[in-house]
């Protein structure tokens, strides 16, 4: 779990933050906070699916679920455990 949190936070920082001064926490609002635009959720989804070899259905990969690193980790954990 902690490992997922680290990896996903690192990916989000690398992929989405433009400003090196910006700080990001595990519960920072990503989409509603204007950090991740909803159009580029596709990259995040593809990253998670490839990295963890899971398939996230569209009705679960919603803007709400993708809104914080913590909620993404919950989703990933659920699907990894189902494997």
């Amino acid at each position: 779990m902690e490992e997922y949190r680290k990896v996903i936070l690192e990916y989000v920082i690398e992929e989405y933050l433009e400003d090196e001064d910006e700080e990001l926490e595990y519960d920072s609002p990503l989409i509603s906070g204007g950090i991740v635009d909803s159009f580029s959720m596709v990259s995040l989804k593809r990253f998670l699916e490839t990295k963890y070899k899971i398939n996230l259905p569209d009705d679960r990969a919603t803007e709400e679920t993708f809104d914080t690193v913590n909620s993404i980790v919950e989703l990933v954990t659920e699907f990894v455990n189902k494997k």
Partner: peptide, 26 residues
């Protein structure tokens, strides 16, 4: 695949299209 700072009207145009959407850093 759109720049993350494109104008709002383009964002609306992208929303209206069924094609897959992605963005790149400005």
């Amino acid at each position: 695949i759109s720049d993350r700072l494109v104008h709002a009207s383009i964002i609306d145009g992208i929303r209206l299209s069924p094609a897959l959407r992605d963005t790149f850093k400005h």
